[in-house]
Design a protein around this nucleic acid. Structure first.
Lengths: 141, 141
DNA sequence: ACTTGAAATGCAAATAATTTGCATTTAGGA
DNA sequence: TCCTAAATGCAAATTATTTGCATTTCAAGT
């Protein structure tokens, strides 16, 4: 993907720090915490400051460039939003990699939504488990 | 619900602090952050310490007494697990109340799970929006 | 009721995560 | 090239979370 063009299209200035964040997330293929992103960005761009990371994570999330996964884990993780379309994630507890889930539960909930009188605005669906590579190996705890 | 009996059944000692946590969550009907829980527990049990709250949240989560909701919000919120059965939540962006969702997407994902070779262990599904009471009122931003 | 060990708590202090104000720099349009 | 809003770095303030240890309390078995 052409990150520069992508940023411009979203109305964000192209900076090395932003490119580094996206590169880090792309290479990782996993969801990373803010701290993990910071550490890896520092390797390719030593001068970065943590506040830049935080500010950009928020911004890029708002622009739909990043997606979030959080949970009992307390600290949320972020990933590059690879697909244009709405989607959800498998997250591997072994290697941390995430796969796209195409199934979206909201498409099948009309009835219950109506019954409860609830107006859905956004939703989150994440499945944690083990990917093909990790399932066999001793990675399960 | 009889909290005392409930704690015993889970193999946890009955303490005022724990009862207070459960009472607070029951009265609220919403998902609360650790800090919110702490503040409200302090009102009915002034002596509590924050570390007691944290330790109990972890423990009660592990025992299935509490459920978690998290997200871009960074800080997770906890709620009393009212239903015995597995379930998910609607969370109202207006008043914070949460309703039980009966629909569970995992029941309908067999095919995609198989195709991707993923072994699901746990999952999270949360729908954010507005409940019947908040939908009309000016609470939407 | 009394004893006892394990579990739970409070306290204080350490650590980690997140946010903010402000001065400076920089991207990108005019 | 010039200019302005946006982005950054820095440092310091907040806020959240964890931990070790001494003390207290629960509840099981007398």
């Amino acid at each position: 993907m052409d990150f520069e063009e992508f940023l411009r299209k979203k109305g964000l200035k192209v900076t090395n720090q932003r490119l580094a964040i996206m590169k880090v997330l792309e290479n990782s293929g996993s969801m990373l915490t803010a701290t993990e992103i910071f550490e890896r960005v520092k390797e390719i761009f030593p001068g970065v400051n943590f506040s830049t990371i935080y500010r950009n994570i928020e911004l890029m999330k708002k622009k739909g460039i990043l997606c979030t996964v959080a949970r009992g884990e307390r600290i949320p993780s972020y990933g590059l939003r690879v697909e244009e379309e709405h989607h959800h994630h498998f997250v591997c507890k072994g290697c941390g990699k995430s796969l796209v889930i195409e199934y979206c539960p909201m498409n099948f909930m009309g009835e219950e939504v109506k019954k409860k009188g609830f107006l859905p605005v956004e939703h989150e669906f994440v499945v944690y488990g083990f990917c093909r590579d990790c399932e066999g190996s001793g990675l399960k705890k």
